[in-house]
Design a protein around this nucleic acid. Structure first.
Lengths: 132, 132
DNA sequence: GTATTTGCAAACAATTTGCAGATAT
DNA sequence: ATATCTGCAAATTGTTTGCAAATAC
């Protein structure tokens, strides 16, 4: 698993950093093809995975959706707007000790956790208000 | 969205209740085809969705995986074993007030949340120990 | 020089959809 | 009687893979 510096890999990293908001592989691909139309989708996927593994970006897995990739690599939570489907960061302290609340009768080893909120984003709320 | 009582729908409900442990659509399909080989996969999917909407079963969405369906319909959390990939229930009180910890500067409406833990299940832990 | 990485196309898995015929009410 | 539901096959979506050629080191 040696790491080479390829043009494609930096293009992927730059795209994620530029897109910022939880870009999907497809959005990253589209972003790159603007300037570099010959890159392959497979290469984008492979590099997203590699960058996530080396911790340079963060893979966010949202149930029932395409994977997303985040330029913010620290632990944080997300909310999905049930109306527009967008994913947003949630400003809430990371629950380091949440696992202490578990009644671990069965002897699991707990390693980490994800919290995904659902709700309505401000823009969609506003839109709903306007309908009245 | 009227609801008819079809044989297929009760077959799906019974299969979920019988399988118990977070069955995937495919497992439900396989379970039914034992006794009723002509049912269509599409019908299984359609009825799983319908039953989830009417609250008779619970849809569990695990990131990066096929959807699963649970006979337990109350709110509860899950842990995914990173080794064997199985999903287990987590015995932990439902965090009714977790949303109070959010610094909601932007005016989101929070509706619900999911927590998915990751770790190693007892069986896999035991297996790892045996290797030494 | 050689092992990694790429691009392509094809494979894949999970799920959805269009449609004509079957069925519950 | 008729609107919903089913089965089938094809379509879709997101992602992975096999392989030969390209490239980084």
């Amino acid at each position: 698993m040696i790491k080479r510096n390829t043009i494609q890999c930096s293009l992927v990293l730059n795209a994620v950093n530029k897109l910022k908001n939880h870009a999907s592989a497809d959005e990253v691909y589209a972003c790159i093809t603007n300037d570099y139309p010959n890159i392959s989708r497979a290469t984008v996927y492979r590099n997203l995975d590699k960058l996530a593994k080396t911790g340079q970006i963060k893979k966010i897995e949202i149930p029932g959706e395409a994977e997303r990739f985040d330029h913010l690599t620290h632990n944080h939570y997300h909310i999905k707007c049930l109306q527009c489907g967008q994913i947003f960061d949630v400003d809430m302290p990371y629950q380091e000790n949440i696992e202490n609340q578990i009644i671990n009768k069965h002897g699991f080893l707990f390693i980490g956790h994800e919290i995904i909120f659902s709700g309505i984003c401000p823009a969609c709320l506003k839109e709903t208000e306007l309908l009245h």
